[in-house]
Write a protein that binds this DNA or RNA. Sequence first.
DNA 1: GAGGCAATAT
DNA 2: CATATTGCCT
Length: 280
Amino acid sequence: MREEDSNWFAKWEEEFPKPEELMPLSQTLITPDLAIAFDIPNPTSPNPQNKQQQTPIVQSSQPNSSAEFESGELNGPGGGDEPARTLKRPRLVWTPQLHKRFVDSVAHLGIKNAVPKTIMQLMSVDGLTRENVASHLQKYRLYLKRMQGLSNSGSGGSNAQSLSGADPAMDNLFASSPVPAHFLHPARGNSDQFMPFVPHHHHMGVVVGHHPHVQQQYRQFGSPRNGHFEHPFLSRQQSQQQVQRMGTSGHNGNYVEDVDSAATDVNGRKVLTLFPTGDD
DNA sequence: GAGGCAATAT
DNA sequence: CATATTGCCT
């Protein structure tokens, strides 16, 4: 019982956006079927008054069979009554924010408890599946490993070092969130710290976008898209900020669409964007 | 079944 | 290219 114990929770809370802040932006979970079926409402006449659906109960959501409203046309096999069955969920887009939540969860869970299931539960992100987390966790571990090998300079911190030529694959995303020091080296003398497990439930909005065609979301640095130069980090943040503005403006309940890093798709590739509306 | 990880697929 | 999926193992 150190003084830290009394602090971790406060910090943990602080990092999260308030429900009120989430409200304007968060949409209820738009089920793939629904989104696809309706092809997402047009941006100019969105749903001005969207209701938010809170789930006060802690639940590992397996939103895989809830809504099944067909748009009327259905060639469905059999009769066309059954709920969504073999529908594929869109690819999950790991925004820096979402990943931050991921990292926070892992950090607070401790290495031992940081397994896909628990992480997923702690994150409490609607629509997030165990597989999503598992896949990302795998990559994240590789990232950490890579970094341990290169952790020479005495930055004393745990930040992304130079990334050049190695595996610049995911560095961009991962570098955007602070990596707890204990991650880099196994607990020493510290058995483990377990958490009381407090089910914080913040609702994250889910946006499914159907975009014409955008290629890479995370472009190389120094490549301005609309004639504006920006930093890699900023560019990402700005993209998100744009999204937020649209929502907070209250004018248009616009779904993410124009934003390059928002819900986008390459020729029919649907993308799921869960975004928290909070700080970075 | 759940997890970890490498390979492979989209 | 970022995720998803699969295979094989513990």
